[in-house]
Design a protein around this nucleic acid. Structure first.
Lengths: 334, 334
DNA sequence: CACGTTGTTTGCAACGTTGCAATATGGGGG
DNA sequence: CCCCCATATTGCAACGTTGCAAACAACGTG
C-alpha cells in the first residue's frame, strides 16, 4: 500500500541505501542522483515509516508532557507553549493527564503506562520531587513548577517565594492591613503552595503584619475560591485584601464578592497568580503574578532535549529559574 | 539495557514466541508456563518495545486529534475528554494544533507533518469539509464541529441551527425585541458560524423579528467580543439582547458592558455558546448553549475506532448528532 | 602509467516484535 | 495398545529502516 524505500529505489534505479541517504541526509549524495531519487519520492508519495526508523535508532522522537490537567487555563496555556517549543526542535509531544494522582504519575514515569517516549516533562502534583528521580529510572526528566533545593533532577520554575512576597508587598503598599491568603494545601506537605505561603508571610512580616487568615483548599479551581471567600466573610474582622495562590481561585473569590455585595477593590483588594486570560477580562480585571510561560516551556524543552541527545549526560542537575512580573490591575485598586 | 523478549525467554526457560504469547495474550498458554514467564517479566522489568510491535503490526496505536488551539476553554475541555475516551479504548492521543491554518490542516491530513497515526479526529477551521476526505487519502477520519450534509466522512456535531434557534427563542421569550448577534465569519464562507447565524435568524423570524445587527469577528475570543459590543453600543438604536456565537465572545462583551456602564441583564441580555467554565463563575453568570462534550468525545472516538479496526470499512459515512441544552442563567435575566 | 585519495554508492545485518506453519505433548476413543 | 485430536510450544521469516564497512568510480599526483 504505502510506498517503501524499496519501491522508491526500484523506480529511481538506485539502491535502497542511497534512497535512505537522500531522505535522511545521512551521507553525501551526488546532485544528479539526489534529484532522481527526489522525483521518485514525489511520484510515489513516499513517507518514511517512523515505526521502523524508531526501532532501528532506538529513539521515538516523542517526549511526554505530564500535567495534572489540560483543560484549566493555566495548564492549557503551558502545554500549548510546550508543544510549540518541542516542535521547533523536532520533537512531538505526547500529552498525559495525571489528574494529580500519585499512582498515575508513578506509572507514567516507570514506563508501565503510556507510549514509549524519549524523555518526559512533568508537572508533579502528588509526588514529592525527591521521589521522581528514582521512579524515572534513567528516563531523561525535567520537572516543572517547583524548586526542590536538593533535588538531583533538572528543574524549571519561577521563584515562588519571591513572587508571593511581591504580591503581599503590593497589597500592603496599597494601604491594606488585614490581609488573608487562599490556596494553602497542607495535605500535600510540600510543593508550590508551601513556597507561596512562605513568600506571602515574608511580604507581610516586612511591614510588621501577620496574615489575618490562611484558607486551605482542595484544589486551585474556581469553586474552591468561591467557598473560601465566603468563609473569610464570616470572620469577625473581615479582611481588606486577599491573595489567592491561583487566578482561578481569585476568579471564584470575585464571584463570591459579587454575590455578597462586597465591592472589589473598594471593600476588598484581590490578587491572583498565573496571569490566565480570564483575569484580563473579568470585571474588575485581576491583579496577578505573571510567570514567563513561554520561557518556561522553551527552557524545559531545551534542557530535556540536551539530556536526551546525551550531551548533558554527566552534568549535574540544573535548576533553572525563570522571571516573573507582578501585573497590577483593577482588582487591587490600581 | 532494556529487557527484551529474548532476555525474558532465556530467564524463564521458554522460547521467545511463548513469552510473546503471554504478554500479548495471543494464544493459549499453560498456567504453569504463564506464571513462570510472568515472574521473569517482573524480575527483569520487561516492557514491550512499541516501535517493534508497531512495525510488525502496521499500527501505531496513536490517533491524532487536530484542533485549532488547545489553550482555549472550549477546546481544552474537548481535548481532555477526547483523551479520556481514547484511553478507555486503548488508544493514545497525539494532539496537534492547527492554529486554524489551512496549510497545516492539509499537511497533517496528508501525512507530511507529524507522527504516524492510525486515524485522526479533526476539528477543521479553514478547510471546507468537502476537501477533507480527499486530503486524508485513506486515513480514517472523523470530523468534529460542523455538519456537512453531503459529506462522505464521519461527522460528529450538535445541531448548530437548532441550538442557535433555541437561544434566539429564549431571548425573545424573555421580552427582548432588539436582538443582535456577534460571531459571524463570512470570510470562511462555510462552517459553524453560518449555521448558527441561520438558526439565530430563524428563531427571531418565528416572532416576526429581524436581527438589529450582526457583527463579524476575526476569531471567537474575548477581545473580539469586547470590540464587537462596543460597536453595537454606537448604534442609534441600541440592542436589548445579544447572542454571541461563543462564550468567550460573550465574556468579552460582558467586560465591555462593565466598562460602559451597561447593566446586564437589565439593559442588555447576553447569551453565549459552549458552556465553558468561566461562564459559570462570571458576574452575572452566563446563559449559554451547552453541548454534550463528553458524548461528542465518546462517539467520535468510538466511530474512529471502528473505522481503524476495519469494521466499518464499507459502510457509508455516519452523521452523528449529539444533544445540547440551553442553560438559562443570570445574564439573560432568569 | 601505477597509485593513493576523495567522493559515491552498495550489500549485509540487525533493531524487537508477531504471523504463520510446523512440531511436541498429553489424553481419550476405538 | 495404537491412533487421532486438541492443546501447548517452537522456529523461521518478515515488518522498513539505518549503521557499518566494503566496493566502486573518478581524479590528480608522483
Amino acid at each position: 500500500m504505502a510506498a517503501r524505500l524499496k519501491d522508491v529505489a526500484a523506480l529511481a534505479g538506485v539502491s535502497v541505501r542511497t534512497v535512505s541517504n537522500v531522505v535522511s541526509n545521512a551521507a553525501a549524495v551526488a546532485p544528479a542522483t539526489r534529484a532522481r531519487v527526489m522525483a521518485a519520492v514525489e511520484e510515489l508519495g513516499y513517507r518514511p515509516n517512523l515505526a521502523a526508523r524508531n526501532l532501528r535508532q532506538g529513539r521515538t522522537g516523542l517526549i511526554g508532557v505530564a500535567v495534572p490537567e489540560i483543560h484549566s487555563p493555566y495548564f492549557g496555556a503551558l502545554t500549548g507553549l510546550l508543544i510549540d517549543a518541542a516542535q521547533e526542535r523536532g520533537w512531538t509531544v505526547l500529552l498525559e493527564r495525571t489528574g494529580g494522582r500519585a499512582e498515575l504519575e508513578r506509572r507514567l514515569l516507570d514506563g508501565s503506562e503510556g507510549h514509549q517516549v524519549d524523555g518526559m516533562i512533568i508537572s508533579p502534583w502528588s509526588t514529592p520531587p525527591a521521589g521522581l528521580a528514582s521512579l524515572a529510572g534513567g528516563l531523561p526528566l525535567v520537572v516543572l513548577g517547583e524548586l526542590d533545593p536538593h533535588g538531583s533532577i533538572d528543574h524549571v520554575a519561577l521563584d515562588n517565594v519571591a513572587a508571593a512576597r511581591d504580591a503581599a508587598r503590593h497589597l500592603v503598599a496599597a494601604g491594606r492591613r488585614r490581609v488573608a491568603a487562599i490556596g494553602l494545601q497542607s495535605a500535600l506537605g510540600h510543593g508550590t503552595a508551601e513556597l507561596r505561603a512562605d513568600g506571602f508571610r515574608q511580604g507581610l512580616a516586612e511591614a510588621g503584619l501577620a496574615p489575618v487568615a490562611e484558607v486551605e483548599v482542595a484544589d486551585l479551581h474556581r469553586e474552591e475560591g468561591t467557598r473560601a471567600l465566603r468563609e473569610l466573610l464570616l470572620l469577625p474582622e473581615r479582611p481588606d485584601a486577599v491573595f489567592c495562590f491561583s487566578d482561578e481561585l481569585a476568579l471564584g473569590a470575585l464571584r463570591a464578592c459579587g454575590e455578597q455585595g462586597v465591592r472589589v477593590p473598594e471593600d476588598l483588594a484581590l490578587a491572583g497568580f498565573d496571569d490566565i486570560e480570564d483575569g484580563r477580562f473579568s470585571t474588575p480585571s485581576l491583579t496577578t503574578v505573571s510567570p514567563d510561560l513561554a520561557q518556561i516551556a522553551e527552557r524545559a524543552v531545551q534542557c530535556l532535549s540536551e539530556r536526551v541527545l546525551g550531551r548533558l549526560a554527566e552534568l549535574p542537575a540544573r535548576r533553572i529559574v525563570v522571571p516573573h512580573r507582578l501585573l497590577v490591575r483593577e482588582s487591587s485598586g490600581a
